[in-house]
Design a protein around this nucleic acid. Structure first.
Lengths: 185, 185, 185, 185
DNA sequence: AATGAATGAGTGTTCATTCAT
DNA sequence: CATGAATGAACACTCATTCAT
C-alpha cells in the first residue's frame, strides 16, 4: 500500500498545511492525520519538525542559487537585469506555494535557517540589480521591483482579472522600475 | 506600586514581544514576566490573548479610517492621490512597530479580526489610487506603491543609508508609480 | 441606588444559578455579573463561596426542624405520619428551587456542611414514619415515600399533566406507602 | 511495563474518582497520579475528559437498551412489567458504581450526552410500565417505582440491615407499586 | 517502514480569594 | 458599601519528541 513515496507525501501535505495555517499553528498530529499515519512515522523520515520545513526549501534554493550564479557571470547590463527578473518570475511561479508561505510567515522565517539563507539570496539578487553608487531612490526601485513580485503574486487576488495578465503586468512594472534605476531616471 | 498604567504597560510589552517573536510564539507567561506580574493579572485587563492584540490595533485603525474618509471626499485627482501616499507614509511611521508586526505575521493576521479589517482598509486605499478601467499594469502600479511602502519601511535595513533618506526615497518611488498610473504611462 | 438588599439579591441570584448549573460550575464572577457588582462586593457580604450556599439553607432548615420537633411531640399514629407528609410537601413546595438544587447536587452536598445537616434531618423524618421493628419492606416504604416526594417534585416534568395534579398525586402515593407500612400490609 | 490495559485502568480509576468526588471536582491530574502516568498519557487514550465519562456509559447502555427492546416486544401485561423491574434491578446492581455516580451528579449529567441518552431510556422504561390513560396517581406509582430503585440502591446505607434484604425489599415495593397501578388500585 | 504508548514542558484560561483604597 | 488590581493554584488540553517493538 505505502510505497517509498511517503517522504514526498509528507512534504506535500506539510507545504499545504504550513501555507494554509502557518508553520507554528500546524501540528505534526495534523500532518500525520492527513496522511493517515502516526506522528511517529514522520520521525522516521525527518528528524524534527523544522527538518520538514528545511527540506521544503531545498528544492527551491537550487534554482535561485543558479540564477544568482548566472547573474554574477553576466555583464551588469540592463538586458541582464531584465533577464534576471524574468527568470525570477519563473522561479516564483514554479514554487508559488512555498513563496506564499514565506510571505505570510516572515516572522517565523527570520529565526529559521532557511530564512537566513533566503535573506542572503535576496540581498545578492538586489545587488545584481542595483548600482551601489546610485541615488537612494534608484536603490529603492530595484528593491521594490523584487518586493512587488513577491507581494503581487499572492496578494493580487483581491483585484479582478486574469491571473496570467496580472503576472505579466507585475513583471512589466518590475522591469520598468529596474530600467528606470539603470538608466538613471 | 500598582497604578493605573498596567493596561498600557501590557500593550507596550505585548507589541514589543509580538513584533520580535510573532504572535503565536509569544506566550502570556512571557508578557507577564516582563511586567513582573502574574498571568492572571493580564486577564484582569484583557479578556483573551487575542483581545490584547485587538487592542493594539485600535489606535492605528482610526488614522487610517480618517485618511480613507478624507480621500473619498476629495476629487480623484493626481494631487489627491499623492497626498494620500504622503499621509499614509506618516501613519506608517507613527505606528511603525505595529506595521512591522503585521508585515511579519501576515498569516496569523489573515484569520484574526483586525486582519480582516486591515485588508478592507487596504482595498479601500488602493481603490482611491487606481482607476478600475485602467490597464492591468497601471492597477499593479498603484498596488505596488502601497506594498512598497509597507515592505520598504522595515526591510530596507539591509541597505546602508540614512533612515530618513530611505523613507523619503520610498515615498518618492511610490508617488512616481501612482503618477505613472494616473497619467497613463 | 443600591440599598440594604444586596445580601438578599446575592442569595437570589446564587440560588438561581446554583440550581441551573450546579454549585461547582457557577463562578462568583457569574453571580457578580448578574448583579452588576464586582466579585469583591460578594466578599463584603459573605466570607466564602460556601458561605453563600450555607446561607441559602438557613431559611429552609428552620421549617423542617420545626416539623421534626412537632412530629416528635406527637403520638406515633397514622394520622401524625400523614400530617408529617402533608407538611413536608408544603415545605418542599415553599423551597422548591433549593430542593431541586440538592437533588441535582447530591455529590457536592455530601461533603458540605448543609448536606450533613440535611441528611440528619431526613433520617429523623424517616424515623418518625417508620417502625424500627417492622419488616424491611415496610421500612423501604417509608423511605420511598420521602424519596418519591423529592424526586417527583422535579423530575415529573416529563409527564404531561397539571402540576398541581401531579403534586397531589405524589402526596397521595406517599401517604399510601406510609399507611401500608403503618398498618402492616 | 506498558501493557495494553492502560485504557481500562483509566476507566476504572475515573469511575472510582468520579463516584467519590463528582465529575467536575475530579481533575485529570488526579486520575493520572493514581495511575502513575502523566496527564498527557490520558490524552493518548481519550480525546477529552468528557470522553472518558462517555466511555464509562457505553458498557451500561447496552443492557438497558436491550431491556427496553425486550419490553417493547412483550405484551403489556402485569407479568411483563414485573419482569422489567426484576431485570432492571439486576442491571442496576451490575453497574452500581455508575448509577451511584449518576444519582449524585444529576446536575452535571443533565448537560452531558450520556445524561440525555439516559433520560430518554428512563422515559422509555416508564412508558413500558405505565398506562398513559390511567389516573395521575397510577402514573406516579410507576414513576416512583423506578425512582425508588435508583435512590434506594445507594441511599439505604443509613438504615441497618442486610444489603441483600434491602435490595429485595426495594424490588418488592417497586413491584407492588406497579401492580397497584396496573390493576387500578 | 512504521506503530503504540508515553513524556515533559508548555499553552491559554478560570477560579476563589485578598486587600488597600 | 463597594471597587480596582492582583495573586496563586489549578485546570483541560496540545505539542514536539522518544523509544521499544
Amino acid at each position: 500500500m505505502a510505497r517509498g513515496n511517503t517522504r514526498q507525501r509528507i512534504q506535500d501535505v506539510a507545504l499545504e498545511l504550513f501555507g494554509e495555517q502557518g508553520y507554528e499553528k500546524t501540528s505534526l498530529r495534523e500532518i500525520a492525520e492527513h496522511l493517515d499515519v502516526t506522528k511517529a512515522a514522520l520521525y522516521y523520515h525527518f528528524k524534527t519538525k523544522e527538518d520538514i520545513l528545511n527540506s521544503l526549501f531545498e528544492s527551491v534554493s537550487q534554482p535561485i542559487d543558479k540564477l544568482i550564479e548566472w547573474g554574477q557571470g553576466q555583464p551588469r547590463s540592463l538586458e541582464t537585469k531584465q533577464e534576471i527578473l524574468r527568470r525570477y518570475a519563473d522561479a516564483l511561479a514554479a514554487a508559488a506555494p512555498l513563496f506564499r508561505f514565506m510571505q505570510e510567515n516572515q516572522g517565523t522565517m527570520r529565526e529559521l535557517r532557511p530564512g537566513e539563507h533566503f535573506k542572503h539570496r535576496m540581498i545578492s539578487l538586489v545587488d545584481l540589480l542595483r548600482d551601489p553608487d546610485a541615488e537612494m531612490p534608484d536603490q529603492v526601485r530595484c528593491f521594490t521591483a523584487l518586493m512587488a513580485m513577491h507581494a503581487g503574486m499572492f496578494a493580487l487576488k483581491d483585484i479582478e482579472g486574469d491571473p496570467d495578465d496580472k503576472r505579466s503586468a507585475i513583471l512589466e512594472v518590475a522591469i520598468e522600475l529596474v530600467t528606470q534605476a539603470h538608466t538613471g531616471h
